[in-house]
Nucleic acid binder design. Sequence first.
DNA 1: GTTCTTGCAAAAGCTTTGCAGGAAG
DNA 2: CTTCCTGCAAAGCTTTTGCAAGAAC
Lengths: 152, 152
Amino acid sequence: MADRTRARSEAETRVEGLLAVLRTRGHRVTTPRRLLLRSLVEVGGHRTAEELAAAVQAEAPDVHLSTIYRNLDELEQLGVIEHAHLGHGAAAYQLTEDPHSHLVCAGCGATLEVPDTLFHPLVQRALADYSFHVDPHHDALVGRCEDCAAEQ
Amino acid sequence: MADRTRARSEAETRVEGLLAVLRTRGHRVTTPRRLLLRSLVEVGGHRTAEELAAAVQAEAPDVHLSTIYRNLDELEQLGVIEHAHLGHGAAAYQLTEDPHSHLVCAGCGATLEVPDTLFHPLVQRALADYSFHVDPHHDALVGRCEDCAAEQ
DNA sequence: GTTCTTGCAAAAGCTTTGCAGGAAG
DNA sequence: CTTCCTGCAAAGCTTTTGCAAGAAC
């Protein structure tokens, strides 16, 4: 229980810190925003707008999907979160802190989170050869995982 | 004129070769399919379904967008083409021959075509470290071009 | 003649937008 | 009290699907 208590207050501390960013920049602190940030902090990884809406609605059922989208946009403009396109379906959102990139298997749909260091050689070569600054989080790399590659 | 004639017949030869793939695998050769392949060969690079539809409709106005999508799916399953998600909007399709990858600027939307060699270190490390086979064509890398990066 | 394709229309999935009421500061 | 946010409904864009008529083989 001590663990859970500590974990919860740690999460709340992070949420408060992120809310402070909103306040500082003249945005208002509302229930949907607080719950959305809490969901993002608690899940850690990446989630679709719909998944985040479900998490928020567990506490405040009336929060509308469009509110989630508007707040995700806003938080992204503030640099608090960013979104990536994982394969086909919906976009995935994650906190900018603890950044990671994604590998998505085209066969089974499995998602691998990988450290950004994997992209470093590519980022440097893109900059050197094309003067292009790659943001490795925005899109997943698509391919085949070990099992699905073996099937072929 | 000699150039244009030769270019056209070269393109037609490639189209016929691709149609032969269809025939060999038991698929039928139809006007929309021929025109779609011709458009893909002629533009060389990547195009959205809507752009390809426009090109096809220049010759056969009744060809429907849904037919374009169905044929793109079919050609992709045959391995003749593949699609990539460039930033947000619609998917981009290209012939599998002469493969290249994409860098998309999040600021101005410009698209850079880059050789696959740029991805080789990453592909090798993904395989070595995660047993994951990356297909670098499926998604564009998003970032900022020189000009847009300078603005910040 | 049989099977595969097509055109059309409708719908699906994700996301954005207009608006009027309500909450935050 | 003023401005910003929200919920709702409706629409937007890309893509998919059902179906009956028509084309390819």
